[in-house]
């Protein structure tokens, strides 16, 4: 890496810290509000911290309200979509990069096309489809929905990634008598791990944060996911900001932790795969 003068470094740091402040301040305020007792939420001037900070709002959500249940549902749905989407995308990307596919270009266009539809257009037909399949109020309906949104981008990213793995590697395995599936499983997947991690993260994120689909596809409160639980907290006449912000924290922290651990793979995967197209 090229060297920079101390002055430039100082300037850089000032810029970065200002940007960091703007980025993170809303989250600080979310935490601050979540920890305040209800009586201090509307203090003016607003308090940047309070001696009365407590976890009461979190306790209310997790003990008195079924947020633990919502959390589990979100986790099941997100992990399910991630598994399904990564599996399908792996096969598809392998097919695209290892075989001659007629009209591959058109198929990729089709993949991109499915990513572009305005969600609002899909709500009613999708509900109808799921209700005819008897899948309303099931984790499966949400898993299918979210996988379908994540799939095009996943395939696109994995194609880029698989292309960077030399064909000779497949060749060697097949010459040794391995089947295509064995080759994919034993040889290619280990090499593609950063790409798979990146795709999994993207899918998880999409599923974890989605709302409209869970809104229409679940009616049984025991099937609600976090996003629906949060939306239902906004009453007609009353918003308890501390509880709402605590719920937002509960939804945000898992993805933050996950990214903290896996972010390295994300950049590597993008470097190796998608960025090069």
């Amino acid at each position: 890496m090229n060297r920079t003068s101390p002055l430039t470094q100082a300037g850089l740091w000032i810029a970065i810290l200002i940007a960091a402040l703007v980025t993170i301040f809303p989250f600080y305020w979310m935490l601050n509000t979540a920890l305040k007792p209800q009586s201090e939420v509307f203090l003016s001037p607003p308090a940047f911290y309070s001696a009365n900070w407590s976890f009461d709002a979190f306790r209310t959500l997790l003990v008195e309200r079924p947020f633990a249940r919502y959390f589990m549902n979100s986790l099941i749905v997100s992990l399910g979509s991630t598994l399904l989407s990564v599996a399908l995308a792996t096969f598809a990307a392998y097919g695209f990069t290892r075989f001659h596919i007629k009209g591959a270009g058109a198929l990729i266009v089709f993949l991109l096309f499915t990513k572009m539809l305005p969600e609002t257009l899909l709500i009613i037909p999708y509900f109808r489809l799921m209700s005819e399949l008897g899948l309303i109020n099931s984790h499966l309906s949400l898993i299918l929905a979210y996988s379908s949104f994540a799939l095009p981008f996943s395939v696109w990213m994995l194609i880029g990634f698989f292309r960077s793995i030399p064909l000779e590697i497949d060749e060697a395995a097949i010459v040794d008598g391995a089947s295509r599936i064995t080759t994919l499983w034993r040889v290619i997947l280990p090499l593609a791990r950063p790409g798979l991690v990146a795709v999994a993260l993207f899918t998880f994120l999409i599923s974890w944060n989605a709302y409209v689909w869970a809104l229409v596809l679940t009616t049984d409160p025991s099937m609600f996911v976090l996003s629906v639980g949060i939306a239902n907290m906004v009453g007609e006449y009353r918003v308890q900001w501390n509880e709402l912000m605590a719920a937002a924290m509960i939804a945000a922290v898992p993805v933050m932790v996950m990214f903290a651990f896996l972010e390295r793979h994300l950049v590597n995967a993008l470097t190796a795969g998608a960025v090069k197209g």
């Binding site: 009613i124 209700s131 809104l215 229409v216 609600f224 239902n232 007609e236």
Partner: peptide
């Protein structure tokens, strides 16, 4: 069926259409 007021009609229509 618990639903936020702002989404009440949307949820109803989606199910009514089906």
């Amino acid at each position: 069926i618990l639903v936020a007021r702002r989404d009440h009609w949307t949820k109803f229509v989606a199910s009514a259409q089906a």
